[in-house]
Nucleic acid binder design. Structure first.
Lengths: 207, 207
DNA sequence: CAAATATACTTTACAGTGTTAAGTTTCCAA
DNA sequence: TTGGAAACTTAACACTGTAAAGTATATTTG
């Protein structure tokens, strides 16, 4: 049944090109501006054809959301080359920050939107896996004498909170709004990295 | 010219009732579901009347956003009764968390949406004022011997990041998603407060 | 091979959105 | 009484996501 397979292949192709078109629009114009109709126009199909391949817009969001996690995971892969656990943790933070800033639409979709999670039935595999990596790095640090008095899970949660908060404040422009005014940090040009360094310094003191 | 004043009063009244209606809908159904048309129906005027009092929807968002900051500021007022600086910082964190969870739509509008900030011309007074309070509390802590080796502004920024990250992760459901699974923190029923406690514990070590 | 059926896609339509321009009513001042 | 301004509405535009119904084309079956 070679024909049936080719058909299926073709169907998969179209599903993929819908996603590619969505991704393209999404990266260029952001989530709000990425409408079903524009995606359809991009691939030169009628808008309703999209619904033959994706349940609704949230399903497309979810697919993009997963693409984002793949991308993040690939960025994290460089961490394997760093031996010292605490150095690895620092590098992980920097990779996370860079990812958030360079792909802020993806970041938004991955962590700040609820639509994609509506498609996730009680199980958010991508998020868990990313958290698991952080948890392992934290546990590595603990074996090297860091954060020994803390529960690994909640310490990882704390680290994630700080990094997530910092990145979202930066992306939404709140960081610069508060900081670039004369009132605070007159002397600091980059509040973002400086706040990160402060965070790292506090962690360093917990050896 | 008593008549003209009454007119002006009446205009202000309508502007206020638009805001009240928006607030009511917004609290009950969230930002997305609060449309100009629904606000208009609520006050029994035609949709376009709204535009005689507010430039566009972002202007209404901005007004609500300011209401949110008023509310937060009123919650912060209880901090004045707490003498010990570090206790005040802890209480501030708890008030912030409670505000975020109890008014998560407001919180979203205040810190996670960009629309309201579009109305703010290069100056985000509300945000700055809130940050100034945090900064003062941090400086108070420093005078009591905490965080002395750190720059107050960036330390305040770090604290805000952590609190903001924790609250948004909680609100968006990511915290529970990652934590309530068996894989981590089997024994912890409330990951949110536990992570906060971990954060406070790290701060405590920086005396 | 012809008829029935399934597949893939489109057209049309609904109910909603923010927003603008033009039209209408109301009310006050000259 | 009349002119005009102020307050409000109607109608319309250009969008949005999505469902139902219609139409070709291709495949299977009698």
């Amino acid at each position: 049944m070679g024909i049936k397979e080719r058909k299926l292949k073709h169907k998969e192709d179209l599903k993929q090109s819908i996603l590619d078109a969505a991704k393209k629009l999404f990266i260029k114009e952001g989530y709000q501006a990425t409408s079903i109709r524009k995606i359809a126009a991009e691939i030169e199909f009628s808008p309703t054809t999209i619904y033959l391949y994706y349940k609704d817009k949230a399903a497309i969001s979810h697919a993009l959301h997963q693409e984002g996690f793949k991308l993040l995971a690939s960025q994290f892969s460089i961490l394997a080359h760093i031996d010292h656990p605490f150095e690895r943790l620092k590098a992980m933070g920097r990779v996370y920050m860079q990812f958030a800033l360079e792909n802020n639409d993806f970041y938004e979709l991955m962590f700040n939107r609820e639509e994609p999670l509506d498609c996730v039935d009680e199980h958010w595999e991508e998020g868990e896996q990313a958290f698991r990596i952080l948890l392992m790095v934290v546990q590595g640090c603990q074996q090297a004498g860091y954060f020994t008095q803390f529960n690994a899970e909640s310490f990882a949660m704390f680290i994630w909170s700080t990094m997530h908060g910092l990145c979202t404040l930066k992306i939404k422009g709140h960081l610069d709004q508060v900081v670039k005014r004369k009132m605070v940090m007159q002397d600091i040009d980059d509040a973002f990295t400086h706040t990160f360094e402060t965070f790292i310094a506090t962690l360093e003191k917990l050896k």
